[in-house]
Nucleic acid binder design. Structure first.
Lengths: 354, 354
DNA sequence: AATGCGCATGTTAGCGCAAACATTCAAGGC
DNA sequence: GCCTTGAATGTTTGCGCTAACATGCGCATT
């Protein structure tokens, strides 16, 4: 009866008392500290004792309370995914990758989309990390490219991994999604098909990936002595509409390009429409290559030849690294190799016809 | 020096000690229990005291440690999103909606994709809820339609909200995404454009939404005395490919349908290709209506007329309801009205031409 | 035999908060 | 005046776990 304060609803979950470390200790005939040592893999437990305790843990299905553990450790067992990438497919793939590596690790994933433009962004971000005492944070582009964010994390002392197109940090804190390699792959493919007059639609300069995809593309063309004049380079914004308008512009050049590389699938889809609208056919008249291999790439006509970005794999690597980091493990000095983007050839590319 | 056990890294986050409820109590010249009462909105605090404490809390930016709070309350302040819906856009929109309502509430969102087919699914699910002592769970289709899941939650006593196309539960536990209304809207639109011969591509029967979308569509046509014979109904699987093949089939019927309603955008995109491939034009020869209004709807040509499913709004409502539930508030007896789907008219529909 | 040392374990005191049980103080009843 | 009542606050205990500090025990050393 007593006080009856407002919101806190009485009783926790279920009715029966849940098994605690004490129960395990009693069953094993040891103190709870020894059980704790087993759970935390302390080397100072006799092999035989460890096995006995582990058997009991397995039998009872016991698993330590993350909250209590967190309170004692002064950190939660939560990993945050912080992103401002508007592409749903990227986000979901990233989440799946992270969860792949987190499964069975005792960590959980909390998602935190954010708006880097908001005036309270940094303060909110900091609050989020501190309040939740996150074990670690995964940053994706373009938050991952924000050095203020990095500074906050360093100051707080929170483990983090940045996913970025270029090595912007020490190797232990970054996973490089090798967009440059992907750009090269696209150029190589078009070159091998005999294209000489190629148009390029870049992403917005605010994304590092734009520069990388473009850089890789240009490098490969240069290596092959294929020219790419400024006239044949348009700047889009990773959207369908900009893909459409930029491609329309490119198609009006003389000589008309026989191929277009758009820096993401969305823009490539726009390019397909521009081609059709111009009375041309893809790939007979103009080939198109996209980037990302998101769902849209196989839902347009013709299905897009594109560069598959191994987002899920990158997520998995990020989580593995982060868990190791937050457990205090020392990291290798060199950056992890990082899964490389790979070309997926579909129907939107064909031999040059000029 | 002492033991130096393996994984637990010493020291928590940051260096400086963080402010606790004790600090606030000291500053306010009261006991920490009084501060606790203020935080938990107990009515037994003098107005003046409450204001003074609130002022200090605001000033110091203090916010209680969720872990400690959770430990004492026997529940975390985490809300879980459990889903097996493969559509990234749906998932991301849902997450955004949930977070809209959770912002500032002190809750965080942990995501939990699952595979309902896995043999350990139910056990894993239960473990997840119990271990984390989740405050609440949001279930989306098709996990939301699984009564075993509901049973587990009831047994554990965990608050939950199911998002479903039909009222499968008591009103306090469900939010209805009125797919039937959306189906009707699509039919009305086509009828008003004068279409009489209409083809329909349904979703897979394993999703309730399939039945609802189809049901609404059929009901509206019946009300308007427009026939829809089995010949003009195809069953797809919510994928681009099935949309393509089903539409091809429909286009071979005599008389040829002047309009096709596909139960999601993905299939509608497939239908567009089938139309083009058949040498026809959309919307001149055949109109197409989709469902969902995901990104793909505006990235195909012509941009799709479709039914926008207010996923984000539904998510917001779900989180609001769940927070109220988990705070022990009594729920209204009737189901919340639920944001209704709305038709978005773009370029894929036009007047009937037969 | 006394000493030291290292492994294996137990004990105590928190982590930051809320529940249950005091306690205080003022207003009102007879 | 004494006693009841109840609002407003404080004290203690404990949520489930770990850190820091014992402690016990066997063995090698002097």
């Amino acid at each position: 009866m007593a006080e009856n304060e407002a919101p806190p609803p009485r009783r926790g979950l279920g009715g029966e008392k849940k098994t605690t470390i004490n129960d395990i200790a009693r069953l094993a005939g040891v103190s709870k500290k020894t059980v704790s040592r087993v759970i935390n893999q302390s080397p100072f437990v006799k092999e035989e004792t460890r096995e006995r305790i582990n058997a009991i843990i397995a039998e009872t299905g016991f698993s330590p309370d993350p909250q209590a553990r967190g309170l004692a450790f002064r950190r939660s067992f939560l990993i945050g995914l912080v992103y401002d990438n508007p592409n749903p497919q990227y986000v979901v793939n990233m989440q799946l990758g992270l969860l792949d590596a987190m499964r069975g690790s005792g960590y959980e994933l909390v998602v935190h989309p954010c708006n880097r433009g908001a005036p309270t962004f940094l303060a909110d971000f900091r609050r989020f990390i501190e309040r939740q005492k996150l074990s670690g944070v995964v940053l994706t582009p373009s938050v991952s490219e924000d050095d203020r964010v990095k500074a906050v994390l360093e100051e707080i002392g929170c483990a983090y991994i940045r996913i970025a197109s270029v090595p912007v940090d020490e190797p232990s804190h970054i996973i490089v999604s090798n967009d440059r390699v992907g750009g090269r792959a696209a150029a190589r493919h078009l070159a091998e098909l005999g294209h000489k007059t190629i148009g390029f639609i870049s992403g917005p300069p605010s994304f590092r990936s734009s520069h990388e995809r473009r850089g890789g593309f240009e490098d490969e063309l240069k290596d092959r002595k294929i020219g790419l004049t400024p006239d044949y380079i348009m700047q889009g914004a990773y959207t369908f509409e900009t893909g459409l308008s930029c491609a329309a512009e490119l198609l009006s050049r003389t000589p008309r390009p026989t191929a277009i590389f758009a820096a993401n699938d969305e823009m490539a889809a726009g390019a397909l429409h521009a081609i059709r609208r111009a009375g041309l056919t893809c790939p007979a008249d103009v080939s198109v290559v996209g980037f990302d291999d998101f769902q849209i790439a196989s839902s347009v006509w013709p299905p897009l030849t594109t560069v598959r970005s191994p987002t899920r794999e990158i997520g998995r690597m990020a989580a593995e690294k982060l868990i190791a980091l937050s457990a205090g493990e020392v990291q290798a000095r060199e950056a992890a190799p990082g899964a490389a983007p790979a070309l997926v050839v579909r129907d939107s590319t064909g031999p040059a016809t000029n």
